[in-house]
């Protein structure tokens, strides 16, 4: 039996992880799990630690482990700490030897994709067999590459064998935000359901809800969701980044949010993107000034 399936004992910790409730994952009592589920649970906890910003602890924790999946988590931690190259090479080695291992696929895929090696990541992930995490990653990568069509296909395929799994719903919602139209509302429902239920609410789901509201043009509701999210405290970058966008859209001065983002996550995409575009602007504008002068 699939331990992540609705009947499996890992379903809760698994869902916690993907709902972005990392602290719950870390606090999860794994002692009652059956022995074969100890490793998957530990992996989830380690990954949650990384998400919570304790990558160094994780790296130390798995030091010297022989289990390939744990080595992979170590690589993930390294990458988070900025040691991307060694992480990638570790993963590449692992992928060659243990490419059939679901955990390796997922963690490896994450590391490779984060390093921008999308092709390699997809190649590794495509070896999955009924691994929803891998599917979600594939969808994510496709979307990152703006291949909504492929992402949608992936979701639909998964939908066929994993009817109503959380990850499938989430992945579908991600795709929905790219498709737009009625799909915005559908995606909103998915996020809202997670965000508004106390048991599943997390910064991630609240931000997702806010984002979907934003796409639906409901700025006030989006603001409410973001306020809710920021009151939770952690993962500020996601909140602040979207707060910046929301401020801009509603005609408010986004300077404060932008500055806050600078302190919270100086390397956030939004900031690098803006810097890049400012540069582009100056270059493009310069051409005209020379003409005008």
């Amino acid at each position: 039996m699939d331990p992540y399936s609705a009947e499996g004992e890992l379903i809760n910790i698994f869902n916690f992880f993907h709902q972005g409730q990392y602290q719950e994952v870390v606090d999860f009592d794994t002692s009652s799990l059956s022995p074969e589920n100890h490793l998957p649970a530990r992996l989830l906890q380690l990954r949650a630690q990384i998400q919570l910003g304790h990558a160094e602890d994780v790296e130390a924790d798995v030091q010297g482990e022989k289990e390939p999946a744990l080595i992979a988590v170590g690589a993930l931690a390294q990458q988070t700490l900025g040691k991307g190259e060694s992480a990638v090479s570790t993963i590449e080695k692992l992928a060659a030897e243990h490419g059939d291992n679901g955990a390796i696929q997922v963690i490896g895929g994450t590391v490779l994709a984060a390093a921008g090696k999308f092709e390699d990541a997809l190649a590794l992930l495509s070896r999955q067999e009924g691994n929803l995490e891998a599917v979600a990653l594939i969808v994510h990568i496709h979307l990152q590459q703006n291949r909504t069509d492929l992402a949608l296909k992936e979701v639909n395929a998964a939908r066929r064998w994993a009817q109503d799994n959380l990850l499938v719903n989430l992945a579908e919602a991600w795709v929905g935000l790219r498709q737009g139209g009625d799909k915005y509302q559908q995606s909103f429902y998915v996020f809202e359901e997670l965000a508004q239920a106390p048991a599943t609410s997390s910064v991630q789901s609240l931000v997702s809800q806010a984002v979907s509201e934003l796409h639906l043009g409901r700025t006030e509701e989006a603001q409410a969701a973001l306020d809710q999210a920021s009151s939770k405290g952690d993962n500020e970058a996601a909140v602040v980044a979207n707060q910046t966008v929301l401020d801009t859209i509603s005609g408010r001065d986004a300077k404060l949010s932008l500055e806050k983002l600078g302190t919270v996550a100086p390397h956030h995409q939004l900031l690098t993107d803006i810097a890049e575009k400012e540069d582009l602007f100056n270059k493009a504008a310069a051409k005209y000034r020379s003409v005008a002068a």
Partner: peptide, 16 residues
């Protein structure tokens, strides 16, 4: 800036 949102999706990857 107004044109893009950042959706936190897969753990460990940049937002969509």
């Amino acid at each position: 800036t107004a044109s893009k949102t950042y959706l936190p999706a897969s753990a460990g990857l940049p937002p969509l």
